[in-house]
Amino acid sequence: MRLLEKLRSANRGGDVHLVGGPRTIGTVHALGALDTLELVVLPMLFGGGTQLTPMLGADTGLTFRRERALPGGSVEIVYSCEGSRGDLPGRPAGQR
């Protein structure tokens, strides 16, 4: 929580963009601070499917926003996250 507050303060209240994996996504979601989830899907021709993170369930409220093809066959997929709406210290209630 303190790291998120420091990032927001350093960015003067603007958006905070984090790059990470399942643990980062789950932690930010648990803090109620996950407004948008942007995934880049890389095609792999081996292995099986894996759940992105157990902390994101059906109640997360993902709403598809857009997709974009990237060079090399990758795809960017963007969702809004309506199920992550906690109020955090330093922010007025209901504001991200």
Rank of each mutant, 00 (worst) to 15 (best):
P43Y: 13
R85Y: 00
R66A: 11
L3G: 11
C81F: 05
T50L: 12
G49N: 03
T53I: 07
L37K: 01
D59W: 06
E5H: 10
L3E: 07
R2Q: 14
H29M: 11
T36L: 07
R23W: 02
L3C: 13
P43M: 06
T36V: 15
V28C: 01
V19Y: 08
S84Y: 02
L39P: 04
C81D: 03
D15L: 10
D15Q: 08
E38C: 07
R66I: 01
V16I: 15
A58W: 02
G83C: 09
G20L: 14
G21A: 09
L31C: 14
K6R: 15
R85H: 12
E5N: 06
G57Y: 00
D87I: 14
F64H: 07
G47P: 01
D59C: 03
A93S: 14
V16D: 02
G90W: 02
P92Y: 08
R12F: 04
C81S: 08
M1C: 06
L88G: 01
V40A: 07
A10F: 14
G21N: 09
G61N: 06
V28Y: 06
G32Y: 02
R2N: 09
R65K: 12
A93F: 06
L7R: 13
R2V: 14
N11P: 00
S80F: 02
T36N: 03
R23Q: 11
E38V: 08
G90P: 06
I77W: 01
G73T: 07
P92G: 07
H17R: 14
L31S: 08
I77A: 02
E38L: 05
P89H: 12
R8L: 13
Q95R: 08
T53N: 03
T53G: 02
A93D: 07
R85K: 13
G72M: 09
E67C: 13
R66L: 00
M55W: 02
G20A: 08
S74H: 08
N11C: 12
L4P: 05
K6G: 04
C81K: 02
D59H: 13
V75W: 04
G57P: 01
E76I: 09
T27K: 11
P43T: 13
E5D: 10
P22R: 15
G83M: 08
A33F: 01
D87M: 15
V19G: 11
P22H: 09
G48S: 10
G90E: 11
E38F: 01
L42Y: 12
D59K: 15
R66K: 15
L4A: 13
Q95D: 05
